[in-house]
Design a protein around this nucleic acid. Structure first.
Length: 470
RNA sequence: GCUUCCUUAGCUCAGCCGGUUAGAGCAUCUGACUGUUAAUCAGAGGGUCCCUGGUUCGAGCCCAGGAGGGAGCGCCA
């Protein structure tokens, strides 16, 4: 009986040990048949494939089968047998069907897709995000999401990196990565005021203003200056009013930080990391990827294979500007050295000119963050952006400025308050070292690997402006 | 935040020049059919035409405001 408890749809579909009694539990996707025999497609989330349950109607009371509707939950006992039908190798000849949970078909919104093949849209599914994991699409996306999270930890662990937990609540708002969400326990009505009439955060929970983190990088650098090779993988929060298919207010970020790495090491790491993740997905998520490829994007598998077979194109910002200036294509926005590239420019480089992932480096210092290492020419910094087709920037990173004086100079130029970051500057005061790192947006990675087109469809419960349901 | 498009049955959509009782396909329900695979066949039920106000003899359709959604842009990962 304990053996029976362990069976999953995945295990049963792969099984060659037939004509044995099994117990399987799952949710009904569809039921069809006649008054003599019923066919139930059962899914338990272990795989995108369904297990066919065959029920001879005469063996079951009518009320029993009547409750077996799309969305209901069953425990089925029966014999695993070779299928008489053509759609599947094995099926269960049911001897007992227990309805664990009914699902009113007049109300349950995720009814089977009909013969017209027009299902519920991804937009409509966002309105019922609490139920959408039960669809094939979101089942596939969530299994792939899991596999990628695991592969990330595996990659770093296999390569000698340590996983560091950086704080979610931060006392500094000087990281420069975007607007922050305030964290406070002060009362909304009549908060305590100081002598100047401002809200007195000395009386707040932490005794100072605090926010949700926008990045674990600065704390990650602290750890890298002791452990050598570290990475973070945690939630980050940005209160930007961003309304695009590539931004979330709450997203997960992976940030490796490596002592003694320079910009080239950083690029090598980013490229090897991304390629190994895509390879992992192709090796471990074949069924789900095939479904997404067939259903949404016929080029998905080809694109993934292309990425693991081809090196990324590396060039400097200055070289990119020259290419864009001599391009025959007309751009809506002009290209000029010193201004940041627009989406259309990045897309041109990745999708038209090179037709492969691109790593752009050595941007003008004015358009990048204060902590990036200044190049010898004094005009550019050792930044790198990895640009992917359809996604744009998937990774942003840099070699960090390890020289205390140069770093302080940059902070003053960019009006970053030194006093708030005294602890960060201590890394440059005591045993400073060259180091480099980057941030990978987890959901953007999942966008690329799944071929989904909206980032709100690759996270279970998306958070974006005006939306925090579920 | 800006630009632009959209909102009609559970879902996907049609709805002509503003005209009287708002349609289709799928889903659901009922019935038929001895192994289905997008089952098939027959029938039935199902509507705050996003909301508010206006124009008009008359508004799903025209106008104004609002709400929600999509795409693009900016910010970035």
């Amino acid at each position: 009986m304990s053996d029976l408890r362990k069976t999953s749809v995945q295990d049963l579909l792969r099984s060659t040990d037939l004509d044995r009694e099994v117990l399987v539990r799952g949710w009904v996707r569809t039921r069809r048949g006649n008054k003599y025999v019923q066919f139930i497609a059962l899914n338990d989330g272990s795989t995108i494939h369904n297990l066919q349950v065959v029920a001879d109607a005469e063996k079951f009371p009518e009320e029993n089968l009547k409750e077996v509707t799309t969305g209901s939950c069953l425990a089925v006992r029966g014999k695993l047998v070779a299928s008489q039908g053509k759609g599947q190798a094995v099926e269960i000849q049911a001897s007992e069907i227990e309805v664990l949970g009914t699902s009113n078909p007049e109300e349950y919104p995720l009814q089977k897709r009909g013969s017209d093949q027009k299902g519920i849209s991804l937009e409509a599914l966002r309105e019922i995000a609490h139920l959408r994991p039960r669809t094939n699409t979101f089942g596939a996306v969530l299994r792939i999401r899991h596999a990628m999270a695991f592969a990330i930890h595996k990659y770093f662990n296999d390569n000698g990196y340590f996983y560091v937990h950086t704080p979610i609540i931060t006392g500094s708002d000087a990281e420069g990565a975007g607007q922050m969400f305030r964290v406070t326990t002060l009362p909304e009505q009549n908060p305590p005021l100081d002598e100047a009439g401002q809200v007195d955060y000395k009386q707040d929970f932490f005794g100072k203003p605090t926010n949700l983190t926008v990045s674990g990088q600065l704390e990650g650098e602290l750890a890298a200056m002791a452990l050598g090779k570290i990475y973070t993988f945690g939630p980050t929060f940005r209160a930007e009013n961003s309304n695009t298919a590539r931004h979330l207010a709450e997203f997960w970020m992976i940030e490796p930080e490596v002592a003694f790495n320079d910009l080239h090491d950083n690029m090598d790491l980013a490229e090897d990391f991304l390629r190994s993740l895509v390879r992992y997905a192709l090796e471990h998520c074949a069924d789900d990827l095939k479904f997404l490829n067939d259903q949404y994007d016929k080029e998905l598998l080809n694109r993934l294979k292309f990425v693991i077979d081809n090196e990324f194109q590396r060039l400097t910002y200055t070289e990119a500007v020259e290419i864009l200036k001599s391009a025959k294509q007309k751009f809506e926005f002009p290209v000029d050295w010193g201004t940041d590239l627009q989406s259309e420019h990045e897309r041109y480089l990745v999708e038209k000119h090179f037709k492969k992932p691109v790593i752009l480096t050595n941007y003008p210092k004015e358009i990048k963050a204060f902590y990036m290492k200044l190049d010898d020419d004094g005009r550019t910094v050792r930044a790198m952006d990895v640009l992917f087709p359809g996604i744009g920037e998937i990774i942003g990173g840099s070699q960090r400025e390890e020289d205390l004086q140069k770093l302080v100079t940059r902070m003053r130029e960019m009006h970053v308050p030194e006093e708030d970051l005294w602890w960060y500057l201590d890394t440059r005061r005591y045993g400073t070292a060259p180091h480099a790192g980057f941030g990978l947006g987890f959901e953007r990675l999942i966008l690329f690997v799944t071929g989904m087109s909206n980032i709100r469809d690759v996270i279970p419960f998306p958070r974006f402006p005006k939306s925090a349901e579920f």
